[in-house]
Every structure is written in structure tokens, then in C-alpha cells.
Amino acid sequence: MYRELSEAEDEGRPVPVWLSDATKQAWGLDLSRQSSKGTILVRPLTRLNYNRASWEINKGCNFNCEHCYLAERKFAGLPRSGKDQLIALLRDAGVLWLQITGGEPTIDSDFRHAYEAAYRTGMMIEILTNGSRLHQPGMVELLTSMPPHKVKVSLYGATEESFDSLTRKPGAFKLLSKGLQAAKEAGISLELALIITKHNAHELEAMRAMAEEYATRYAEYTNISPTYDGTSEPLSAQAPGFLNKSSVFTGCPAGHTFFHVDPHGFVTMCKIGRENPISLMAEGLDGLLRLPAIADAQMLRTGGCSGCQLSGTCRVCRPLAKAYQAAEAPLESYCQHREGVTT
């Protein structure tokens, strides 16, 4: 089927019947009379099997959230030419789904340029944002002319008092509200991430109501984690009684089918497991061949978890557990077996 698509696009033949039938069923899009050339973007085959990546385009942020997992939020990263090179490397690694995050990605001066470049490679793009710049005309134009796969907006409260308190940014709630309204009026589909903390737990129903008004779907996040390098400051934002330990960690393909890239082009298995970063800019795609072994090494049990006989039902992944241990977090903040475990 890939070969058929590639030849049809190369020779300008009509879109294959099986594809036009699928697009009509999925999206109501009739391609039955269309030439494949200019209609289908056929990505070249790659020797790597990475289909997803997340990219911190910049760690800088216009908020100063109390619960942020980033140890530092310095405004720094690759120049525009470096971003172009990185996107080409992601394409050649096989990446079809790209999450652009930060910090706050939309404050990067090259965000629009990078978004357009990734979009033109055929990547499905997800933006993780605080929503503070969604109201700007340039942003509305970008997201309506080149629709993303998903825009996920973090919701930190339902009132100015709670929102601005957690973000430590006066006026943050007003910016968020303007962004939500602008997206709604422009028809931009949003997903809301409800971040439950001690500042807003009493407003949970109101936050859900906001999500119902502005989002096509939403999810609630109740567990606050340490910074990825194991400092405890974010844990102070945890809402008492809101720890969620409902799902068992059954493994993760991080480093094998997807990876994370920091603002300077260093690749790690994920946002949390950042040991032994690989410089994608210096090593190119060959550097990714080392990533699976690096990821596997970070999945080994350490600290008080090394001899645990109940590890098969852990509810946090190993890199995150290491961060909790490094932060000397209370055992009850991440281990459901705390009553029968000695550390």
C-alpha cells in the first residue's frame, strides 16, 4: 500500500480507491477524483522506528508555576537554522506525531516558523500551552490555517485568586480567559488539562464547568511530582487527599518508539528520564541507535525499591520514582505499598 501511494504521488495518478474510501468514511472528505500529486504527502522510508517525539522548543515561560517539574526555566535554545535542522532530523527518524512544549512554547520567537516547518513535513502536532497567547491574531491565524492535531491547555484554577496564586503571575487568569474565548470563537478545538493543587482543589466543579464550556475533552491531573532532577519544591503544591494511584505501571516504550528533545537538541528517553543525553545535532540519527540501551538502564530499580517484592504493581515509572527518591519525598506521595516497605 505504501508502494502504491508512493508511485501514485510520483506519477500523478488518482488517489487509490481504498484511501479515498477511508478518508470519506473518516472525515467526509471526497478524494475520489483527485490527483495524488499535491493531495498526498508521502514520507520517505526510514531505517529507524521512532514515530513520536516531544520537543521543548524553549524552557522559558511567562508564568512561574509553583508546581513546575522543570528545574530551571532559562530562555535559551537553538537558533532558527538549528530548529530547521532538528525538524529535518525528526522527520528522518520517522516521527509522525510531534508534541511541542516548553516552558511556554508560544513565547519562543521561532514558534510559528518551527510549527509551519513541522506541519509541512506531515507531522501531527500537539501543542502543550498555558493558553496565554491563544488570543493573539497571529496565533489564531496559524492554528486555523494549519490545524494542529491537538492543543492542550493547562487549567490552574477557576478564579483569578487561585490561578494567579499557583502561576505566581498577576493577570495570568485574564490572559487564559482571553485565550479560551478566542479559540472558541475561531473554532479551534481544545483539550483542557485540569491541574489540581492546594490552590484550586475547592474549585474543582467550577474548573470542570470551564472545561465543558471551552474544550472538546478534558482530563484531571492530581499528582504533583518533583523536578526531573529530583528537587522537592513542586511537592508543596500537592492538594491533600488528591493523590491518584488508580493505575499500575505496566511498562513504557520510551526510548524505543519515542523520545524527548530539549531546547538545545539533546535527546533523552522522555521528559523525566534525562540521564546520558544524546546530542542529535552533533551525532545525527546514528546517536539514536544508543537510546534504547540508555532507556533500559533507567528502568532498573534503585534506592528503597531495589528489594521490593511488590514492584510488579508499582504505580509510577522508574525514572519518576528516582526523582521522588532524590527529592526525599514522603513515601506516601508515590508508593501505594508504603505501609509494608522499609527504605
Rank of each mutant, 00 (worst) to 15 (best):
Asp164Thr: 13
Arg290Gln: 10
Lys59His: 10
Ala114Asn: 06
Thr342Trp: 14
Lys152Asn: 09
Ala8Ile: 00
Glu11Asp: 13
Gln181Gly: 06
Leu291His: 12
Thr268Gly: 01
Leu180Ile: 06
Trp18Cys: 05
Pro277Tyr: 11
Asp92Lys: 12
Arg217Thr: 12
Ser333Cys: 03
His149Glu: 10
Arg52Asp: 14
Cys308Leu: 11
Asp21Thr: 15
Ala117His: 03
Ala297Ser: 14
Ile87Val: 12
Tyr324His: 03
Val42His: 04
Gly38Leu: 02
Phe75Ala: 09
Arg3Ser: 14
Ala321Trp: 00
Leu96His: 06
Ser81Leu: 13
Asp296Met: 03
Thr159Gly: 12
Gly304His: 03
Thr106Gln: 05
Arg168Phe: 05
Phe173Lys: 11
Ser177Arg: 03
Leu89Arg: 06
Gln34Ser: 06
Gly103Leu: 05
Glu205Cys: 12
Asp21Glu: 15
Thr129Met: 04
Pro319Met: 06
Gly122Cys: 02
Thr250Glu: 15
Ser177Ile: 00
Glu56Lys: 10
Ala193Cys: 09
Cys252Arg: 02
Gln99Val: 02
Lys322Val: 12
Gln298Asp: 10
Ser20Thr: 00
Leu310Asp: 11
Gly255Leu: 01
Asn64Thr: 14
Arg338Glu: 15
Glu141Met: 01
Gln336Ala: 14
Arg318Cys: 09
Asn49Phe: 13
Arg52Ser: 06
Met269Ser: 12
Cys305Thr: 12
Leu243Ser: 11
Trp97Ser: 13
Leu190Glu: 11
Ala114Trp: 00
Lys83Ala: 02
Ala237Leu: 10
Ser109Met: 04
Pro170Leu: 00
Asp262Gln: 13
Leu48Thr: 02
Cys317His: 09
Met146Gly: 03
Gly103Cys: 07
Pro44Cys: 01
Ser177Tyr: 08
Gly12Gln: 15
Ala329Lys: 07
Arg80Leu: 10
Thr250Val: 14
Glu104Val: 05
Ala327Met: 05
Asn49Pro: 03
Gln181His: 10
Gly157Glu: 08
Ala295Trp: 01
Ala53Asn: 00
Cys305Gly: 08
Leu155Pro: 00
Leu190Thr: 04
Thr257Ile: 04
Asn276Ile: 02
Asp286Met: 10
Trp27Gln: 04
Gly122His: 10
